Simulated assay, not measured.
Amino acid sequence: MRYSILDLAPVPEGSTTAEAIANSVALAQMADGLNYHRYWLAEHHNMIGIASAATSVLIGHIAAQTSRIRVGAGGIMLPNHSPLSIAEQFGTLATIYPDRIDLGLGRAPGGDGAVFRALRKSPQMAENFPQDVIELMQYLGDAPSDAAVIAHPGQGTHVPIWMLGSSLFGAQLAAMLGLPYAFASHFAPGALDEALHVYREQFEPAGRAAAEAGPHFMLAVNVIAADTDDAAQYLQSSQKLAFARLRSGKPGKLPAPTRDLSEITPPLERMVSQALRVSAVGSPATVRDQLASLISQYRPDELIITGQIHDAEARRHSYRLAAEVLDDLAA
C-alpha cells in the first residue's frame, strides 16, 4: 500500500510565509528520500495560516527541488477556475516534470463569499462542477480532430485526475467517471463509511487508467508521531487549537503547542474530537496500532497523512517516524 503526504503548508505563529514555504520544501525533500509516493498541496484562500493559495505555483516549486516523488494538488477547487486554465497549468507542469504530477479536484470554495467575489466567481459555479470535470478531462486527454479549443500544453498529457470529497456527491461522481477517490477524513469524517460504500459499489470503469485499476480509494489520516505518547499529544494541541479557532470564526497562524487548552469549550471539544477522529497520535508503537486499525477497517488502496505541527523539525521527525511505521506495516 502506497503512502503519501498532504501538506497544508502551515504558517506557524512567530513565523513568516517565506519560512513556511521553505519548511515545505525541506519536508518534501526528506519525503523524496523515503518511501513516500506523493506530496500534495491544497488550495485555500484568505487564510494567513496557510501558504498554498497559488497551488500550482507551489507544486512547481516543490517539483523543481525534488527528483522522484509525485507532486500534486489535494486539491484544486475547480469552481474557482476555468477548466481550460487548470488544464494549461497542470499540462505545463506535466510537460516540465513528466509522470510526476497529480491533479486532485474538489468543489468546495476554498474560502467565503468575499473570496468568491475577489476571484470574480459566484457560489453557483459549484453547480457546474460535474460538467467542468468532464471538460477538464477532455482537455488533458487526446485531442479530437474537430476540437475548437485545445489546451496547450495540456492536451495528451493525461495528468492523473483524482476526485476529492467529504460527502456522497464526490463519491458518486468519482464512481460515475471511473476516477480514483480521496476522502477528506482528516477533518470531515462524518460521511466516510457511507461514501466509501457508495464509491466501491457504484464504480464504473470509464477511462484507460480506471479500466486497468478499478476503484481506487485513498484515506486521509492525521498522524502526529513523537518519541513518546505524551510528546505527541502535546504537539497535537496546535492542531486542536487551530481547528477550534477556525470553527469559532477566528482563523490564524498555526498556534504553538500548549498544555492549556481551556479556550476550547466543551461544545468545541466535542466538535474537534469528532472532526479529528481519523487520527494516529503517539509514539511509534501507538501510531502503528492506530494506523493498523484504520487500515483494517477501511481497506484503503493508498494512505495520505497530514500533521499540523508547529515546529518544523518536530514535523519532519513525525513524518520520519510515520514512514518507519508504515514500512513496518507493509513488511
Rank of each mutant, 00 (worst) to 15 (best):
L93C: 01
P300K: 05
A54D: 03
I224N: 08
M271G: 14
R299A: 11
A330C: 13
L179K: 05
T17P: 10
P180W: 07
A256H: 13
Q172I: 08
R288M: 07
A51F: 01
M271Q: 14
L78V: 02
P79F: 14
P205G: 08
I62Q: 01
A312H: 03
T286Y: 04
L140T: 03
I76D: 08
T228R: 14
L6Y: 05
G75M: 10
A175L: 12
L136K: 14
E19T: 01
T157W: 12
A28G: 05
Y319H: 09
V115R: 09
G60L: 02
I50K: 05
F90D: 01
I96Q: 07
H45I: 03
L136N: 09
G154H: 04
A225T: 10
Q138S: 10
A209I: 14
I304R: 06
L268G: 15
D260I: 00
A213Y: 12
S82D: 07
H158Q: 11
S262P: 02
R120E: 15
L291H: 12
L168T: 14
S85V: 09
I76A: 08
G165Q: 07
G104A: 01
R299F: 13
F183E: 02
N23S: 11
V287N: 05
G91V: 03
A231E: 12
L326E: 04
I305F: 05
E13L: 00
G113Y: 13
R120M: 14
D146G: 08
R107T: 10
A42R: 08
L219V: 07
I304G: 06
S262Q: 03
G49I: 01
D112V: 06
N128K: 11
S24K: 06
Q89V: 02
L168N: 12
F183Y: 03
V149R: 01
D260R: 00
D102L: 05
F217H: 09
G282A: 11
L177I: 04
H81Q: 11
A256G: 13
H152C: 11
A232N: 03
L254I: 01
G14V: 00
V281W: 05
L196Q: 13
T228S: 10
S273M: 13
A143T: 13
V287S: 06
K253Y: 04
H37A: 15
D193T: 14
L58R: 04
E135M: 12
R299M: 13
H317A: 12
A64N: 04
I86A: 03
S318G: 06
Y36S: 08
L6Q: 04
D112I: 09
